[in-house]
Write a protein that binds this DNA or RNA. Structure first.
Length: 499
DNA sequence: TGAAATGTTGGGGCG
DNA sequence: ACGCCCCAACATTTC
């Protein structure tokens, strides 16, 4: 567990009044699948009333982005871990399926619960659910917990939401520091009667035939304990050189906390304070640590954008991009998804995604640039694929990041910034170790040719046992020509908007 | 959180 | 010795 310097808060253990003993509080677990530093849960426990924890799998609410395959795999294991942790406190976890507002209202009727406690969420449908419950007369108490700074809290001088990251980041640093984490509740008063729940197995969240989750099991331990392990590994290791190494997919240069943060198995407050403590204890890590906090702030910024522009996942943030004409090219899209574009750094990334449920951030930018710019395919196609295959699939981060690469987002990369995947590969995977790991058929190519096998002499290819078009595809797109095409399309879009 | 084209500079080869 | 050219290296501009 991450050590925090603050004094442990004693939770009240006074006996509930008799009248209240039979009327539990419903605790709605959402994207806060943790017991430690869960302010909403702590507040529920602090009332002294019985607390009934519930999780609702909501594939039905209108406008909801139904959780993708990788997320469902993660959810299964995270809920298992959470249920185990709760069981140690003698507390059940009730599972229900359906549109969250109606499911929760039914549970309130069944149990006679007096109130519903939860941590805020910021997806449009999640906010709608909170409103619907409140409108239905449910006593709903919402707590901050998934963000360091609530979306309403940060405003520009003119009172508008931020659209540019740097001033947003400055505002974060000037704001009152995030609250220190809370310890986990020492006990939870168990309700006298527990309503029936569904079995996790019945939800069929795990893949069966085929079982594609082997690589996921190898790299991840969903749940609060796994999150703490990752955090400790990061603080003991990569954080020191994070500023430079975070761009190196061939190294362990990043925290890999993103799925844990998405599911709320660790709070950003825990991360923030653990990193601050690390800086105190080991000042030489300050550069890397500060750089990590800045990345945490990008997560905040994405949520800030989604909260204030709920259409962010569906519509370009910059209206002029609605005039952009995208290619209808299912073959190229398929090759991109399969990691068979013939461009090694791109294929390595797409295969890493498929095999492990995760992709290094630098490589995410490279594969996204290829899809959007070189292939001229709508960024929403990439967004949808990432949504299905990433264990850290997060509506705010995913939407904001795709729009960032597309150039249509807030404070986005200019459209004419088109990555050259060969140069990116040589710069950030200099000895090709990352490519070799995920594209083993190129493993014997020498370093200087591994990022552009189509430019290698025939003798080098045959020496490495590579026949292009057979063992490994030729590039599906000419990088130079497609770059020119992308720039032309961008100019055409701008002119279309003007006329 | 780019890349490519274009411009500038300065050292060295060479007639 | 001198001027000229070449071109790598770096800087600036453009997309």
């Amino acid at each position: 567990m991450i050590r925090t310097s603050h004094r442990c808060v004693e939770f009240t253990t006074r006996r509930p009044k008799d009248a209240m003993a039979t009327t539990p509080i419903l605790f709605w677990f959402r994207q806060d699948l943790r017991l430690t530093d869960n302010r909403a849960l702590a507040a529920a426990c602090d009332t002294g009333q019985a607390v009934l924890p519930v999780y609702v799998l909501d594939d039905e609410s209108p406008g909801a982005w139904r959780m993708g395959g990788a997320s469902r795999w993660w959810l299964h294991h995270s809920l298992t871990a959470l249920a185990d942790d709760l069981a140690q406190l003698g507390c059940p976890l009730v599972l229900r399926r359906g549109a969250a507002p109606s499911v929760l209202q039914a549970l309130i009727t069944e149990t006679g619960a007096t109130a519903l406690y939860c941590t805020r969420a910021y997806e449009p449908w999640a906010r709608n659910a909170e409103t619907a419950l409140s409108d239905a007369g449910v006593e709903i108490k919402r707590f901050a917990g998934n963000l360091l700074f609530e979306p309403e809290a940060l405003r520009t001088q003119s009172g508008t939401p931020y659209r540019v990251f740097t001033p947003f980041w400055k505002a974060c640093q000037a704001a009152p520091p995030p609250k220190p984490p809370l310890p986990r509740p020492q006990s939870i008063v168990r309700p006298e009667s527990i309503p029936a729940g569904e079995s996790l197995a019945a939800w069929r969240l795990l893949p069966t035939a085929p079982d594609w989750a082997g690589g996921l099991r190898k790299g991840w331990q969903p749940g609060e304990a796994g999150a703490q392990t990752k955090a400790i590994e990061f603080l003991d290791g990569a954080v020191a050189d994070y500023a430079s190494m975070r761009d190196r997919p061939d190294r362990i240069g990043t925290s890999r906390l993103s799925p844990h943060l998405h599911f709320g198995e660790i709070s950003p407050h825990q991360c923030w304070h653990a990193v601050r403590a690390k800086i105190e204890a080991s000042p030489k890590t300050a550069g890397g640590a500060q750089s990590f906090l800045r990345e945490l702030a990008w997560r905040e910024f994405s949520n800030h954008l989604l909260f204030n522009w709920p259409a962010l996942p569906e519509e370009p943030f910059q209206p002029k991009f609605t005039a952009m004409r995208w290619a209808n090219d299912p073959d190229s899209l398929h090759a991109w998804k399969q990691g068979r574009t013939g461009i090694p750094i791109v294929d390595a990334g797409m295969r890493e995604l498929w095999q492990t449920g995760w992709m290094h951030n630098r490589v995410r930018m490279i594969v996204a640039s290829l899809l959007i710019k070189n292939l001229q395919i709508d960024w929403r196609e990439g967004e949808a694929w990432f949504w299905d295959t990433l264990v850290d699939a997060d509506l705010a981060n995913n939407a904001a990041s795709w729009q960032w690469v597309a150039g249509s987002g807030a404070d986005a990369a200019p459209y004419f910034r088109i990555f050259n995947p060969v140069l990116q590969g040589r710069k950030f995977d200099p000895d090709g170790a990352y490519v070799r790991r995920f594209v083993p058929e190129l493993g014997r190519l020498p370093d200087r040719h591994i990022h552009a096998p189509w430019e290698a002499p025939e003798a080098v290819l045959s020496e490495a046992g590579v026949m292009l078009g057979y063992d490994y595809p030729r590039p599906i797109v000419d990088l130079r020509a497609s770059r020119q095409r992308a720039l032309a399309a961008y100019n055409a879009m701008r002119e279309a908007k003007e006329t």
